[in-house]
Structures are given as structure tokens and as C-alpha cells.
């Protein structure tokens, strides 16, 4: 147990100070729900009454700063930058690096009602027949994000000067260090090397993890894109490739884009909103990100075996490697 005050009081006091409220100003903060959307973060649903911004919000807490991909300040900044350029992102109303308030850095953003859990989300999409609309909204959101001048991004976000080469090197290093040779991975890596595109003519801010599971949808369509901790400056085609990866379809394999709709719908919307689509580069990134996930699963199996993270779930990842190798080779086959 810690002697930390309960989150309601701690947040109320923090907000009072942040909003510079006087002693007579009423403010009440209640934690009305919790969710652990990601392994790293804790999300507290808040009901704020009084003060300048009453309403429902979410406090996203990063328990320990040392495992942050992006600091909460940088993630909040990138979220607001994207939002200011027309990408649907919940508004951030406050950021704290003071870990004493909630046990970790946090930001507070508006609560957006809707569905995030993939299978339920896909059911909602089918019921309302809004898959094509959501894919169109995703295409437009990507175009809005990719047109932002990357010089506006926080300096701390990853910005490899050669994103194609960096991604290829990372996959290549894992394949060199597999527990046993995996010829299907070697085949895909060879293909990636032989078909390696030039570095992107323009490096842009990419989210790098937009997928079914990181979006909020309601019966009207796409409401928000979440989880910006992986944002970086890179090749825009990486974003468009990742959302097409098979695991994000949750069995709805006839709809390439997240089980929601087709690549044609995504491309049309992206181009209509001003994005520059490069089919060859898109295809290369699809194989690359598929391989990257496959090598990640191989890495989880290794972490189980060498004791870094012993768990039946991590062990089981080894039996999933064939899925990603198969996806990569069928993509190459269709190329």
C-alpha cells in the first residue's frame, strides 16, 4: 500500500491547481470506470463537475516512465497536432509529468463513447453496414495526418533518416538471431531486400499502429484514433500497410482493411483527401510489417524459453509464427 491519496482527490487537487481555481470554485472529480486497453497503460474514466470543463474524460496513466515509447507530454503533443489538422483524436485537456498524482505520468482527454473491442466493433459495423464508410474515414484521416509538416512534431519522436532501411535492418537482425533457421522468413527477407524501395520522397508523421482495436467506432462511423504512443516520422505507406494486416481482420478476411472494407476504398479516400499513394511501396510495406510481427512472435517464444518472460501465452506465440510467414509469402505470391 502507498500513502498516495485516492485518485479522485489527487486529480481534483491537480485540476484545481492546473485550472487555477479559487477556494470558492466548486470542482468534483469521480472515477467512474477503469479499463486496461493496453498492457502498459491504465485508463481511468472520470466524471468532472464544476470548473471550466465539466464532463466525462479519460485519464491515461503510464505506470512507469522507463517503459514509455513516447513520454506522455510528447504523446499529448502529437495527439493535439493531429487533432488540429483534422484527424479524429480525443481532445487532450491536461498533461502531467508529476508521477505523485496518479502513480505515473498522465494526460486527460475527452471521453468518446463507442466500441473499441474488435469483435464487438465488427459486429456493430455489420449491423449498421458502415464498414465502407469507416474505411473511407480512415483513408481521409491518414491523408490529414500525412500532410502535416513533420517539423511540427515534438523533437523526441522517432525520426529515422532512412525509415525503409531502418525497418529492413530491424527485421533482418531478428532473423539472423532466430532460435532455429526459418526458411520462410529467409525467403521473405530476401524478397524484401530485392524489392526494397527507395527511401520515401517525403518523410511524414505516421501513427504506426492504426488498426481495429485502436479505433473508436459508433453507429455513425469512425469517432477516434487512439494509442499514439508509437507515432514517429517515417514512410506514410507504413500506416496504410499496417491497417491491412490480416490479424486486424479478426476472421473477416474478405475485408482486407481491418475486417471493415477494401483496399480500393482506402486508396480512393486517401487520394481524394490529397494523399499520395504509391502501390509498389504499399505492397513492400505490407510484407515488411507482416514479417515484423512474425519476428515479434518468434521473439516472444524466445523470451519464454530463456526466462525473460516465462508464460504459456508467450510460449504459444511460437506456434503462431507460421501464420505470419504464410501471410508474408501469400502477399509476395500475389505481388
Amino acid at each position: 500500500m502507498t500513502d498516495r491519496p485516492n485518485p479522485d482527490d489527487a486529480l481534483r487537487d491537480w485540476l484545481r491547481a492546473t485550472w487555477q481555481l479559487g477556494p470558492d470554485d466548486h470542482l468534483h472529480v469521480g472515477v467512474v470506470g477503469q479499463s486496461t486497453a493496453g498492457a502498459r497503460r491504465r485508463n481511468l474514466v472520470l466524471e468532472i463537475t464544476g470548473g471550466p470543463r465539466p464532463g466525462r474524460y479519460v485519464a491515461t496513466v503510464l505506470p512507469t516512465a522507463d517503459i514509455a515509447i513516447l513520454s506522455m507530454v510528447d504523446e499529448a503533443a502529437i495527439r493535439m497536432l493531429a487533432r488540429d489538422h483534422g484527424v479524429p483524436v480525443p481532445e487532450v485537456i491536461g498533461v502531467s509529468v508529476d508521477e505523485s498524482v496518479l502513480g505515473g505520468q498522465f494526460f486527460i482527454s475527452e471521453f468518446i463513447a463507442g466500441e473499441t473491442i474488435p469483435r464487438r466493433l465488427l459486429r456493430l459495423v455489420r449491423e449498421h453496414d458502415i464498414g465502407a464508410r469507416i474505411v473511407g474515414q480512415l483513408g481521409e484521416a491518414f491523408a490529414r495526418l500525412h500532410e502535416i509538416d513533420p517539423a511540427l512534431a515534438p523533437a523526441a519522436i522517432g525520426a529515422p533518416p532512412a525509415p525503409v532501411g531502418a525497418a529492413l535492418d530491424a527485421v533482418s537482425t531478428v532473423i539472423d538471431n532466430l532460435l532455429q533457421p526459418e526458411p520462410a522468413f529467409s525467403y521473405a527477407l530476401r524478397w524484401l531486400r530485392e524489392h526494397r524501395p527507395t527511401e520515401p520522397p517525403q518523410r511524414r508523421i505516421v501513427h504506426a499502429d492504426v488498426r481495429t482495436g485502436n479505433i473508436i467506432v459508433d453507429h455513425t462511423g469512425l469517432r477516434s484514433i487512439l494509442d499514439w504512443e508509437t507515432a514517429k516520422v517515417g514512410d506514410p505507406m507504413e500506416d496504410l500497410a499496417w491497417v491491412c494486416t490480416r490479424m486486424w481482420r479478426f476472421g473477416e478476411d474478405h475485408f482486407t482493411v481491418g475486417g471493415l472494407g477494401t483496399v480500393d476504398q482506402l486508396r480512393d479516400a486517401y487520394v481524394a483527401a490529397g494523399g499520395t499513394w504509391d502501390e509498389q511501396r504499399f505492397h513492400w510495406w505490407r510484407v515488411l510489417v507482416t514479417m515484423r510481427w512474425g519476428t515479434g512472435l518468434a521473439g516472444q517464444a524466445a523470451m519464454h524459453l530463456d526466462g525473460r518472460f516465462s508464460s504459456v501465452v508467450m510460449a504459444a506465440s511460437g506456434r503462431r509464427v507460421a501464420e505470419l510467414a504464410y501471410d508474408a509469402l501469400t502477399l509476395i505470391d500475389a505481388g
Binding site: C244, T245, R246, D253, T256, T262, V263, T290, R320, A322, E323, Y326, D327, A328, T330, L331, D333, A334
Partner: peptide
């Protein structure tokens, strides 16, 4: 993963 190899990850 029975069934997975019956369809493809391609568009």
C-alpha cells in the same frame, strides 16, 4: 490454426 491456410492474407 486449422482453416487459416485455406484463405490468404492477400487482398
Amino acid at each position: 490454426k486449422p482453416g487459416y491456410g485455406a484463405t490468404t492474407g492477400a487482398p
